[in-house]
Design a binder for these strands. Structure first.
Length: 947
RNA sequence: GCGGAUGUGAUGGAAUUGGUAGACAUGCUAGACUUAGGAUCUAGUGCCGUGAGGUGUAUGGGUUCGACUCCCUUCAUCCGCACCA
């Protein structure tokens, strides 16, 4: 063998590693552990595109590096295999989602294998596998059997809740989420069993509730807040409306504060922490109760500005607010009803679009100002959201822009309570202000007034300090087939949890994957539940056919259920007794480095932290935060090409001829477009030429397409977008691996730019990396024969090696792979120029390079006649003396009084040293006759001179 | 509107603490070898200028002996949140 033949080398080593289970990992208490994890993919039908592997390559490099460094590295991979596309495909074709999923998983695996990842595949998990979702169901049950104790600030079992009720009622722990009433221990003991069960349900961490949910009629399911964007579904972009439905919910709000506090100790980018912080949306203020005139009911409002309470001139309730019907006067009833109907009809999106004039209706009722006792008109308006705070606001038009507009529009009083501020044009929302016209708050700065006001309200008993969060409880039911079934049935309409001995409660077969005719979710079509037909277990209530007569829960769990705990399962993936054993969980502990996209900031990454905290509180996990360090790889964008069809015709106009004509831009498959570099004058640019024949054959509707050509060809438009099947801009890694090899692709993707940055895919530079590997290969070959010399390395060669060791190790620790690739290139160029083929230099270099390009290094390692695998060798140690030859003390005197030494590192070359000296001379010159107070000098550089 | 990020040659991008801006690679130009090259090697390549030299890190200003780097202004692009009281 002579030339670098990546195809056979890579194939051969993949097989050998696989056969010898080189990457299998077991718990070993003698070694320090390191858990390196990728966000597992949803196996879609399109296969992997070049964007997917970016993060996987980075984590693989890190995992391999840590292995070299002597760590016991857990580096697993699996599939988030429940999800919508497989189900949609099932609806269209009748093919069972499990089959589609199986097929897609196989394709993913093939593509992953080709890239030479060092996963321990014995630990693979799939969220849709019954062995796995058995434990997802178990976790659901654990959460169901838990409540959040505000005193201990953690989740506890329902048994503890019962003890608490028996001892103190709910006087200490506070009211439940529905009734808000307080009862004593005596009250509790006098309750019937049904009543008790009902009360307990209101404290559970997962609970059934009729809540306003994001309903997507097109998809026939509800969506959680993070699955909705701009009033449209994140997947598919369908319209989402608000609808009241009975759903399972997860009480994530109980953990708002801990989720917020926990961010502090995490090594995550501040951008991502900000997103989560924003999403949780903590605001500090007060809750104030306003009495209603001629009515016993009180209206609670939340405000962040209690200091402006004397500026209140009206109140606004959300149209859905409970008290609206109680307070509305007869005269206003018709108007109010009309307004409520109108706003109910509007989708979330329409509400957002309506940013014109404020709308609202007066209820006819008045509240009484708690301090001044003035009458305050109560309105309803849909700019107040039912879901935030108490669903009611005290409107302070002089201090809030929305209140101001509302007051102006409806001619409501705008009292000015700010000293020296003009509010004739707009509200003044700055907090740096002195309060006026406010009784006991006059002359105070806002901050001080805030505190005093809360104090006074507390004294008088109508208000108190309060913290509010934007975060909502997460809806946990989906009206879909392809998800985890709930271990729940309904006895006389009351939810009952199925006991763990019957898990997994497997997903039953159905004829059709669509909702039933009477509108039940797809599982309504199921007749055969495993739990009911298993002969050895007690069935709740079945007829002779084994069919449940007590209905099962027909919803399934959302996609984030399975992904919220999979990192724990990897530690012990085959365990049938527990979701993972204590010892293994303790050994592997939490994830040291987690790599994935930032798009999961408010979904997966938040829910995982939430579940981890519950499981920690209940004693099932030894850590509170699942992911210590998080690295967000940027998206790789695809270049999309467009053709322009004249509206209403089948004629396509070349890009530069479109001008003002009415055209429709359509995505065209990038495989039919050839980028061609052209010279125009001095500059070059790329034009995208369409293969018109291929285009005609592409889709039937284009078979008789006509083209208006430009210079005899059709040029397409180009744009950078997210890679997606529907945009026909997907670049798969497959072809590139065939022409250049996995090692080249791995290094090229790293070379492309900073890992965290979004960047367009461009194969232009791949040749540079490929020729680097060829050069590396050539270092070991003389006249086409492998040849390695045992001669002693020169100083220069050692310098090249060790400087590379230093650079590459530092870079890997910082996830700065894009700069370590050039370090290798420089090393190879230098060693090539020195004609160095010495074992002493090249063997460490192989080890160094192997995390990036494992196949070629393994091949050369074996050709060099070494034992074992290069991927198992320990990492070469950086020896400073090979790089730094000596240090040099440069005496300096200022003014003849003080002496300083400039220590210089004579490392790289003379020029660098001379530069430092020169710089220092310049400084000295500048200092002239002055005496500096202090000169801080560190090796290599003057840091500061204080005069 | 609020919060965050980014802005450097034709292109992707280097510049670890303020100290020769443009490493490394792509592209381009010229040359060598070759039957040929989309193989390999050599040289050149920020811009203006024949040259010495001048100029240059989105814009304008500031701090500093010295600024891509620190501070302020403006502009542009991207991301997150958005009637959040």
């Amino acid at each position: 063998m002579s030339a670098y033949d990546h195809i056979s080398i890579e194939k051969n080593w993949r097989k050998t590693w696989d056969k010898n289970k080189v990457y299998k990992v077991t718990e070993d208490t003698n070694k320090e552990k390191c858990y390196v994890l990728d966000m597992f993919p949803y196996p879609s039908g399109a296969g992997l595109h070049v964007g997917h592997p970016l993060g996987y390559i980075a984590s693989d490099i890190y995992a391999r590096y840590k292995r070299h460094k002597g760590f016991n590295v857990l580096h697993p991979m699996g599939y988030d295999s429940f999800g919508l596309p497989a189900e949609q495909y099932a609806i269209q074709t009748g093919q069972h989602p499990a089959k589609t999923t199986e097929k897609n998983v196989a394709r993913y695996r093939e593509q992953l294998d080709i890239l030479g990842f060092s996963y321990d595949w014995d630990r693979e998990v799939r969220t849709s596998s019954p062995d796995y979702y058995k434990w997802t169901q178990w976790i659901f049950k654990e959460i169901y059997n838990a409540w959040f104790n505000p005193i201990s600030d953690k989740a506890e079992t329902i048994d503890k809740l019962k003890e608490e009720f028996a001892a103190n009622g709910n006087e200490k722990i506070g009211p439940n989420r529905e009734q808000k009433n307080i009862f004593s221990a005596a009250d509790w003991s006098s309750k019937s069993d049904e009543e008790k069960a009902f009360v307990i349900d209101q404290y559970r961490l997962t609970y059934l509730a009729e809540t306003m949910v994001n309903w997507c009629p097109e998809m026939g399911t509800v969506l959680s807040n993070d699955e909705v964007k701009d009033g449209l579904s994140a997947r598919g972009g369908f319209v989402v409306v608000q609808k009241k439905m009975l759903q399972w919910n997860m009480a994530i709000t109980a953990y708002s504060e801990r989720l917020l506090q926990g961010l502090d100790g995490l090594d995550w980018s501040s951008a991502l922490k900000d997103i989560q912080e924003n999403w949780i949306g903590k605001s500090v203020g007060a809750e104030v109760a306003f009495a209603v005139e001629n009515n016993e009911k009180k209206i609670d409002v939340f405000t962040t500005r209690p200091d402006t309470i004397f500026g209140v001139s009206f109140m606004v309730l959300a149209p859905e607010h409970k008290l609206v019907k109680d307070i509305t006067t007869e005269a206003q009833q018709a108007d109010i009803n009309h307004y409520i109907d109108e706003s109910r009809k509007k989708s979330e999106r329409e509400r957002q679009m309506d940013k014109g004039l404020p709308t609202g209706v007066f209820t006819g009722a008045y509240a009484l100002h708690p301090f001044s006792k003035k009458r305050i008109p109560i309105w309803i308006a849909d700019y107040v959201l039912a879901g935030y705070g108490t669903g009611a606001v005290m409107a302070v038009p002089c201090g809030d822009e929305r209140d101001y507009k509302f007051a102006k529009h409806f001619n409501i009083d705008i009292p000015n309570i700010f000293e020296g501020v003009d509010i004739s044009e707009s509200a003044f929302s700055d907090k740096e202000v002195v309060i006026a016209n406010s009784d006991f708050l006059d002359g105070m700065k806002a901050n001080k007034a805030k505190k005093l006001c809360i104090h006074k309200m507390q004294e008088a008993g109508f208000g108190e300090a309060k913290i509010n969060y934007r975060l909502r409880d997460a809806v946990f039911s989906r009206q879909r087939y392809w998800g985890e079934p709930f271990p729940v049935y309904y006895k006389d309409g009351v939810a009952q949890i199925i006991e763990t001995e019957h898990y997994p409660l497997t997903l039953p077969e159905v004829e059709k994957y669509l909702p039933t005719e009477d509108g039940k979710p797809p599982l309504g079509n199921a007749t055969n539940w495993s739990w009911c037909t298993n002969k050895n277990i007690i069935k709740p209530n079945t007829d002779q056919n084994g069919t449940c007569t007590w209905p099962m829960e027909l919803n399934t769990m959302p996609g984030w259920a399975g992904s919220s705990w999979y990192f724990a399962r990897y530690c012990d993936p085959k365990n049938t007794e527990e979701f993972a054993s204590k010892e293994k969980l303790e050994y592997w502990n939490n994830v040291d480095v987690y790599i994935g996209g930032a798009e999961h900031a408010t979904g997966h990454l938040l829910y995982s932290r939430f579940w981890t905290k519950i499981l920690f509180d209940l004693g099932h996990l030894p850590y509170q935060e699942p992911f210590k360090k998080l690295v967000n790889q940027g998206m790789i964008l695809g270049k999309s090409n467009f053709v322009y069809r004249l509206v209403g015709t089948n004629t396509f106009v070349s890009k530069d001829l479109v001008k003002d004509q009415k055209v429709q831009a359509l995505h065209v498959d990038i495989s039919m477009v050839k980028p061609t570099v052209e010279q125009i004058g001095e500059k070059t640019h790329t034009v995208y030429v369409l293969d018109t024949e291929a285009f005609k054959n592409w889709l039937p509707e284009y078979s008789n397409a006509e083209f208006i050509l430009d210079n005899g060809r059709y040029t397409c438009g180009v744009e950078e977008e997210k890679m997606s099947k529907s945009k026909f801009n997907v670049q798969t890694p497959d072809d590139l691996v065939v022409s250049y090899g996995a090692d080249t692709l791995r290094m090229y993707e790293m070379f492309l730019g900073p890992l965290e940055q979004a960047k367009p895919w461009d194969v232009g530079g791949i040749n540079g990396v490929y020729s680097f590997l060829k050069k590396f290969w050539r270092l070991f070959h003389l006249n086409e024969n492998f040849e390695l010399s045992d001669a002693q390395a020169t100083k220069e060669e050692l310098k090249t090696l060790h400087k590379t060791i230093k650079k590459v190790s530092d870079d890997i620790e910082n996830f700065s792979f894009n700069t370590s690739v050039p370090a290798f290139m420089i090393a190879v160029n230098e060693l090539g120029a020195l004609k160095c083929n010495k074992r002493e230099i090249l063997e460490p270099l192989m080890v160094l390079l192997s995390p990036f390009a494992p196949h070629i290094c393994e091949e050369l390692w074996s050709l060099a006649g070494n034992e074992g695998y290069v991927v198992e060798q320990s990492y070469p140690v950086f020896i400073e003396s090979h790089v730094v030859e000596s240090t040099y003390e440069y005496p300096v005197s200022f003014n003849g009084k003080m002496r300083f030494k400039l220590e210089l590192d004579l490392s790289l070359d003379k020029a660098a040293v001379e530069k430092e000296v020169l710089n220092f001379e310049k400084t000295k010159e500048y200092l002239g006759g002055n005496t500096p107070k202090k000169v801080i000098v560190v090796p290599k550089k003057i840091v500061n001179i204080v005069m």
